[in-house]
Design a protein around this nucleic acid. Structure first.
Length: 786
DNA sequence: AAATAGCGCTTTTTT
DNA sequence: AGCGCTATTT
């Protein structure tokens, strides 16, 4: 037996050494799951298996990168050739190379959720439904996503009585119809959404036996991490790919399944036994991460769930401290208590900030905590708050880049055709959109053949559209000859986005936006220079031009599928980590604070209808608890601002479910009035302290009641307007290019050009120090000066 | 056409 | 409380 595996414990070693045939590893929290997987792959390579024939699917790209790093340390750099990444990124890459088979161009765009919702919103609008509110984009997208995850196309959806029943009951019978149109529009746009990447991979393997055979032969060894969080679609892909060699190893923990809400199917774990009766099953039950206290408490929590695989998690670690519970008057004080506790430990015991993590159920909670940390001068880092690529200015730039790579990308086109403003307004755009939808083509197709659609656009509008199309075409023609960085730089410059942002420098936000864009360009530059940044997959499937430089479409490919990519320097820096519990999966910290343990928040009020959903919340709590190595602190607030007003909160049932022998309750708890028993006048009033900690002076005083209800009553007076009579035809027609005019707000300016007649007549005027403005003369009260 | 004011709506988690 | 969308204003 290899020396390599000597570094594992018994069950880990057995699991890693069992390389042939189907294997399932049930790995409890902190049981060395990643380690086992890492050594298993290293072992395979050591045995002489070609890294190119190993496929390892992980939950995040970061996890893949880290694992690959560790494998390379164990067996050398050839490990870089392992296929490793998320389902989405690996299969997106394969789909790129096989796109034509499915009727896509290989530079197809990946639509993110915002893009998808925007498409749905437009469809609902086009359908002119009686009650469009029933079809909120989020809800519809959820339904479609659920269908795609279960490999149900639009036809299947509409023919499925159960689904139709559900939709009818919810008074939204037309979702199937919307689904069909949605798919059609995505296809016209040469775009796939996240679910399509998996759905279409299934189609590819189903309809092209030669392709299936090719990848079956390529991936002789397949490993899937976090198997409990795979959905049906992913399950099918894996099953098909592994069918030939059956060297399939799945790793997971049913107790940590927390993504059922987005289609993950915990049954996949149970089904695995049925699909591969000859499987080898290993259980990793020794926890190396946490104290006995934490492990036992976690066990007591998860025991409340009915559905689970039998296992017994234990540890040899020290007993450790009791779990602590903090109670605060409101979320502001809750933040202060936590910040205070961290600061005391940091100063008193010399613990580095980076050994602390603060976890919460929803992202909105982060704000109060953030403020508390800032007040206490504690450095922190939020994991995926608003991701960099979610910022508006970045999305704008990306839209330009996406459109250059794929002209049919409707969503990008709509986003930027008039940003910065170039005189192609909503009226024009709407007409074009209708034409595109009516003819079942992409918007770009309409733009390229505008005359033949006879939309009755003015010659000026036609010219502006032509200019725009020419600009994009010019850049598209440079794709194969210009590297991603140079091209992106040119596009950003030509788009004039930065110039627009720099117009009002008064806005400090704009400075930051410009910086962000520059930072993004830097990212493109790094991408071009580093040749191994995303090497996990790029060694295979050579891109059409696998030459010296990286192309823009290569850059875009991976941008959308990035999970929160961590910067190296941040890992080093000494900061407290803040994140949602979902984001904390797979991580561990010596000191963990879980905040907001309140009914209706955690568990979420939306989960209380069914046992399944409540059990998922409980697993989420289990995940939170098991992140902690040494000390776990829970906290909750008696009142909390939600939806703009204060509401009374009750302690979470999850806290009560922990056996009292593991938990230390707040001091002087009994002397506390329950907030519900207070005179009404005091309920929800900030500034009243309930907690002993606050009385002891550790916490900052809570905020003063804000007197924002004292807004001026007589606001009607402000709305009084002077006469706003429209200008007469005489005045309108009198204005001609070359004139100097005066405007109420913009001051004096020079008329550059005029267009149209009568009430539609408008003028482009250049104002000193303000810039160029297009004004509708019927409304703008221009005074002719000369 | 573009800027602004007011309104209603939302708010779980994310590849 | 914050946001995007609609209606209104210029």
């Amino acid at each position: 037996m290899s020396e390599l595996l000597d570094q594992l414990n018994e069950p880990q070693r057995e699991a890693a050494a069992c390389t042939e045939g189907p294997v399932m590893i049930i790995a409890g929290a902190g049981s060395g799951k990643t380690r086992t997987l890492t050594y298993r792959i290293a072992h395979l390579i050591e045995l002489g298996v070609d890294p190119f024939s190993i496929l390892a699917l992980t939950f995040t790209n970061k996890a893949a990168a880290e694992m690959k790093e560790r494998i390379m340390k164990l067996v050398g750099s050839e490990a870089r050739n392992i296929w490793m990444g998320t389902f989405h990124s690996v299969f997106a890459r394969i789909l790129r190379s096989e796109a034509q088979k499915l009727g896509y161009i290989n530079t197809f765009t990946i639509y993110d959720n915002d893009d998808s919702k925007s498409v749905i919103k437009q469809i609902v609008k086009d359908l002119k439904l009686d009650d469009p509110k029933k079809y909120s984009p989020g809800t519809v997208l959820n339904r479609i996503s659920m269908a795609k995850s279960n490999l149900l196309g639009p036809e299947d959806y509409m023919n499925n009585p159960e689904i139709q029943q559900t939709d009818n009951d919810a008074q939204r019978p037309l979702i199937g119809e919307i689904y069909k149109m949605y798919n059609q529009r995505l296809r016209n746009a040469m775009a796939m959404d996240f679910d399509d990447l998996l759905f279409n991979m299934n189609v590819l393997l189903r309809d092209f036996p030669d392709v299936l055979l090719k990848y079956q032969n390529r991936f002789k060894y397949i490993m899937v991490d976090e198997y409990q969080d795979t959905n049906f679609s992913q399950y099918c892909i894996v099953k098909k790919l592994a069918a030939r060699y059956q060297n399939i190893c799945v790793v997971g923990d049913d107790a940590q399944s927390i993504y059922a809400f987005r289609g993950a199917n915990i049954q996949n774990i149970f089904n695995f036994r049925r699909d591969y009766p000859n499987l080898n099953l290993f259980k990793l039950e020794q926890n190396y991460r946490s104290t006995k206290m934490i492990v036992d408490a976690a066990n007591s929590i998860i025991a409340k769930n009915v559905e689970q695989i039998e296992k017994e998690i234990w540890t040899d670690n020290a007993v450790g401290n009791l779990i602590r519970l903090l109670r605060a008057a409101d979320e502001r004080e809750e933040g202060n208590l936590v910040a205070d506790s961290i600061q005391k430990a940091h100063i008193g015991e010399g613990l580095p900030y980076k050994s602390f993590a603060i976890l919460y159920r929803t992202n909105v909670q982060s704000r109060a905590i953030e403020e508390a940390l800032r007040r206490a001068d504690i450095p922190y880092r939020i994991y995926q708050g608003i991701s960099f690529y979610g910022r508006k200015e970045i999305k704008d730039v990306l839209a330009y880049l996406r459109l250059v790579v794929n002209n049919y990308d409707d969503e990008s086109l709509i986003r930027i055709i008039n940003y910065p403003a170039r005189g192609i307004g909503n009226t024009t755009l709407d007409r074009i959109r209708v034409a595109a939808a009516d003819n079942d083509v992409a918007i770009w197709t309409v733009l390229e053949n505008l005359p033949s659609f006879g939309l009755g656009l003015s010659s000026g509008t036609l010219q502006r559209i032509t200019d725009f199309v020419m600009m994009i075409k010019l850049f598209s023609s440079m794709l194969q000859t210009t590297n991603a960085y140079d091209l992106a730089k040119q596009v950003v410059y030509a788009s004039r986005i930065i110039a627009l942002l720099e117009e009002d420098k008064d806005d400090p936000d704009n400075r930051e936006r410009v910086e962000n864009i520059k930072e993004m360009l830097n990212g493109v530059k790094e991408f071009c220079e580093k040749d191994d940044q995303f090497s996990e997959i790029e060694n295979e499937l050579p891109h059409p031009d696998n030459s010296q430089f990286k192309t823009l479409d290569q850059f875009l490919q991976q941008v959308l599928l990035l999970t929160s990519e961590d910067k190296d320097d941040d890992k080093e820096s000494d900061k407290v980590s803040m994140m949602t519990i979902h984001a904390a999966k797979g991580l561990e910290f010596p000191y963990v604070y879980v905040m907001g343990l309140e009914e209706n928040l955690f568990p979420s009020s939306l989960s209380l209808f069914s046992r399944q959903e409540l059990e998922e919340e409980r697993r989420l709590f289990y995940v939170a608890v098991t992140r902690a190595e040494k000390q776990l602190v829970l906290s909750y607030a008696l009142t909390r601002y939600q939806y703009g007003k204060s509401s009374c909160q009750e302690m979470s049932r999850f806290v009560e479910e922990i056996d009292s022998k593991y938990i230390e309750l707040p001091r002087r708890q009994k002397s506390f009035p329950n907030v519900g028993e207070l005179p009404r006048a005091f309920q929800g009033v900030k500034g009243i302290k309930f907690s002993p900690e606050a009385e002891q002076g550790f916490a900052q005083p809570a905020s003063q009641p804000k007197s924002k209800n004292l807004k001026p009553i007589a606001k009607a007076s402000a709305t009084h307007k002077g006469p706003t009579a429209q200008n007469t035809a005489e005045t309108i027609n009198a204005i001609q290019p070359g004139m100097t005019v005066r405007h109420d707000k913009f001051g004096t300016g020079k008329v550059l050009s005029c267009e149209g007649a009568g009430k539609d007549r408008k003028a482009v005027v250049f104002f000193e120090g303000i810039g160029q403005k297009t004004l509708l003369l019927a409304f703008a009260k221009l005074i002719i000066i000369e």
